[in-house]
Structure formats: C-alpha cells, structure tokens
Design a protein around this nucleic acid. Structure first.
Length: 418
RNA sequence: GGAGGGGUGGCAGAGCGGCUGAAUGCGCCAGUCUUGAAAACUGGAGUGGGUUCACGCCCACCGCGGGUUCGAAUCCCGCCCCCUCCGCCA
C-alpha cells in the first residue's frame, strides 16, 4: 500500500512513478485525492458532532447528580445521537472506500528498476558437451515419478524418490546453515494462512487465480513462505536497534498454475507443490537498497557454489507484481532445455507490504515509521534439482553432484537407472 | 468433537453505565541527591486520525466487528484467540 501522505504531498511524483508501470489507470491518483478530501470532510463533520454529544452527556450527568430534571436535555441528546450515528457512518464509509482504492494501487517502481527485462551479467561456464544433453527427467528416471504423482493428485504433481530425497535434504540443510551464518534465523512457518496475510503481502487482490483456497476453513495454501514470514511481525513496533531482522523460511509452496496449461509440462519445472528456502528481511528504510543487493549476492553465492551457470536479470517494471519496487531474477542455464530459466528471484517491496501489515520501527526518540521488507529465494528445491542434474550430467547418463552437499548427506553421484 | 474459564497500557493487575486513555505495582526515560552507583524522592512516558504557522485543541482505540443507551472498558449479539477438563489423534 502506498503512503497516503506522499500521495497528498507530492501527487506528481506518485503519478509519474506509477505511470512507468503499464497496469495503472492514469486517473487513479486524482480519484484517490478526491476520496481523501471527501473522507476528511466527513470525518471532521462527524467528530465535531461527536464532541458536542459528549459534552451534552456530561451536562446531563451533572444535572442528574444535582437532582435536576434532565428530561428535556435527554430528548435533545436523543436527536443529536441520531445525527452523530449518521455522520459517523458516512465518515466510516468514506474511509473504507478510500482504503479499498488505495489497496488496489501497486508499489511505485524504484528508479533503477529496468524499463524492460535487462540482463546484467552472466556468471559461470555454460558446459560444452560432446554429447547430446538429456533433461532432468531422463537423468532422474524413476526418482522423479510423474506418472504415479499424476495418478495420486493429477498433473503437475510428482513423487521424489530415492537418492533425490537425500539430495533435497542436503541442499536444504546446507542452505539453512549458510543463511544462519549470514544472520538469518531459520523458520518453519505455517503454510495454511488467513486471507489477511495474503492481502498484507500484496498477493490479494492481485494473484487470486494462482492461490489454493480452502473455503471450508477460510484458509489459503501459501505459494511461498514469504507470506508467513512477512506476517511474523505484523502489527508490531520494532526497536530500530533490532533491525535488520532476517529470516530463512523452509516450507512447501503451493501454486495452482491456472492459465499455464501446456506450458512447462515435462518434469518438475512447473508443479503445484515444491519445497523452498526463502530469505526475508525487515530493514530500516535507508538500508533496503543495500539489503536487496545483499540478498542477490547470497543467491549468486549459492548458485556459484553449486556450480550452476546463471545470469542475473533486472526485471522490467511491467513484470514487477503489485508489491515489488524492484526485482532481480537469477536464471540458471538448463542444458536439457538449452536456455536460461528462472531459478531464484529477489524483490525489494520497500514499505508496500510493511504498511499493509503494519510493521513499524522506532528510533530511541521520535514517532514510529514503517519498515522496509525484502524477500529472496535461497533455494527453490525442484528447480535447483533440475539445474544440478542437467549441469552435472556425463555422457553415460550419470550425474556428478557438488562436493559441498556431500557433507550434508547428499550422494556424490546419481547413477543412471535403466 | 463435548464441557467450562478468560482476553485491559512493556509486564502484572484494578476498574458501581457518567471528566477512566484508564487506579496500583514492577519495569522504562529524565531530573534531584551522590565522587560514582544503588536506594529514596520528583517528573515523564501509548497508537492512529483530524485541525493549527505554532502552542494547542478535537476524535477514535481496553482482542475484532456489530447493537442497546443521552452516555459503554463496563450491558447484549457474532467472530477471533488463549487456558482447563473429557474424547480423538501424527
């Protein structure tokens, strides 16, 4: 959610910022200003009446205590009460409409967010193979069981079996240990969340078609632990000295993938359920740009140590999503597909989520202010397994895995299955 | 799933429907005292909104949302959460 005070004090800046995104009605800011003026007028009218009502009520009490007859005063107060109720309802309604409109506006892009997707750098050696590369599904064989997954739950579900399970657990353990050294507290969060959490993170209203909903319990399956981690400090005022607060969430993630029928149907690149280690930071507003670079650096560190060739993309403003002011994707080279594909993503959501979730901080003196939040993928397990198998493959169909994971229980090689 | 109890400021804990944004204690901040500290004493201290050049003034908030009333922390209804007992359960 945008800062209403900013919209009021510098509407041109907000208009220009939002105009960079293709998805905002140019008249939205002016409509909002009109609603704001209406709300303030209605509020003042209601509060003036209310002040008089309280005054009158005190006079009635005083009269009764003095043994006087307050009948006439009460009769007058009764009429005033009706008026107060009406005006208060009008003010509340104006307030609701203002908030509803405000909640529809996406975040203002950072000036350094790219106009269109822009590759910043390519890192690592794209393997030159003297044989025709196989994709992860061929390499994994029965260890990725799509047929039975589909039989159980439908398309885009898979069983992960055998060695790959230890590979996943090693990957997760290795990542969480690394993040702990970087100052992130490991967290296993709930994945079933209330609507407020999705609203607070900006996924609602924006991506409802992507989210599993359990109407019987009014709960949603989170598509990322970002949702739960962002809500960790909802409604809190944090001491400035305790910032930044960094969390590493590990959880399954659920996505409906509605509207992607026919896309990425082979293997586990795009599935309804996958596990992910997610970084999330609450920081001082002055620090969020630096924190964003920091999260990107950690993502790159992980890819580099896993010897996955990748490139970094500064995501164009049109693809930012509602809450992000700026976003980097790391795209891994996948020999099986012969192209770079998104493996991780990190966003600076500035104060957009924090304002919705009411996460604030306070210096030793002074008023509370809204924090900035950022998120970034440390390891999306499924896609990382794809990158590891396809980049580690040998001519005989075996896969050599990164040595760093062996210490955490990962197999050093995956042997071909028949 | 069944039966009961409870949600008040950082914490603990009062609060006959009428100056109660809220007693009291602890904790916190500042000051006095002290060489310094402790103790003692004095004072201060919530969040949001509106208005004002400003001092200030006004409104809302006692889990959340409605209702009753001239007037609600206090009465009524719904929801959420926590606790105890029984049942069930990884």
């Amino acid at each position: 959610m945008l800062d209403l005070r900013l919209i009021r004090s510098d509407p041109d800046a907000v208009r220009e910022g939002l105009a960079r995104r293709g998805d905002v009605d140019p008249g939205a800011v002016d409509a909002l200003l009109a609603l704001d003026a209406e709300r303030r007028g209605a509020t003042e009218a209601a509060e003036t009446l209310r002040a008089r009502q309280k005054e009158d009520a005190r006079a009635i009490a005083a009269a009764q205590n003095a043994g006087e007859d307050a009948g006439a005063a009460i009769a007058a107060a009764r009429e005033l009460a009706t008026e107060v109720k009406l005006r208060t309802a009008q003010a509340a309604d104006a307030d609701r409409r203002l908030l509803a409109s405000l909640a529809l506006l996406p975040n203002i892009p950072d000036p350094t967010a790219a106009p269109a997707d822009e590759v910043i750098r390519e890192v690592g050696e794209v393997p030159v193979l003297d044989f025709s590369p196989q994709d992860h599904l061929a390499l994994a064989g029965a260890r990725v069981d799509m047929e039975r997954g589909a039989r159980l739950s439908g398309s885009r579900f898979a069983y992960l079996r055998g060695d790959l399970v230890f590979l996943e657990l090693a990957l997760v353990q290795w990542t969480l240990r690394k993040l702990e050294r970087h100052g992130f507290e490991p967290v296993v969060p709930p994945v079933l969340v209330r609507e407020e959490a999705l609203y607070g993170t900006g996924f609602l209203p924006d991506t409802e078609q992507q989210i599993y909903h359990l109407p019987a319990d009014e709960l949603y399956l989170a598509g990322t632990s970002e949702v739960a981690l962002a809500s960790l400090h909802a409604g809190e005022i944090l001491a400035a000295a305790t910032l930044p607060r960094r969390y590493a969430g590990f959880s399954p993630c659920f996505r409906r993938e509605a509207g992607t029928a026919g896309r990425d149907t082979r293997g586990i690149f795009r599935v309804h359920q996958f596990d992910k280690v997610e970084m999330f930071s609450f920081v001082h507003p002055d620090e969020s740009a630096a924190e964003h670079e920091r999260l990107l650096a950690i993502e790159e560190e992980i890819l580099t140590e896993l010897r996955i060739p990748y490139r970094v993309v500064n995501i164009g403003v049109d693809d930012l999503g509602a809450s992000a002011a700026k976003k980097y994707d790391c795209e891994a080279w996948l020999p099986g597909q012969g192209q770079y594909r998104e493996l991780t993503s990190t966003s600076n959501t500035t104060d957009f989520q924090a304002r919705r979730l009411n996460v604030r901080f306070r210096e030793a003196t002074g008023r509370p202010a809204v924090v900035h939040t950022l998120n970034g993928t440390a390891v999306a397990v499924g896609r990382t397994l794809i990158a590891l198998t396809e980049n580690g493959q040998r001519a005989d169909g075996s896969v050599v895995l990164p040595e760093v994971l062996a210490a955490h229980g990962a197999p050093r090689r995956l042997e071909p299955l028949d």
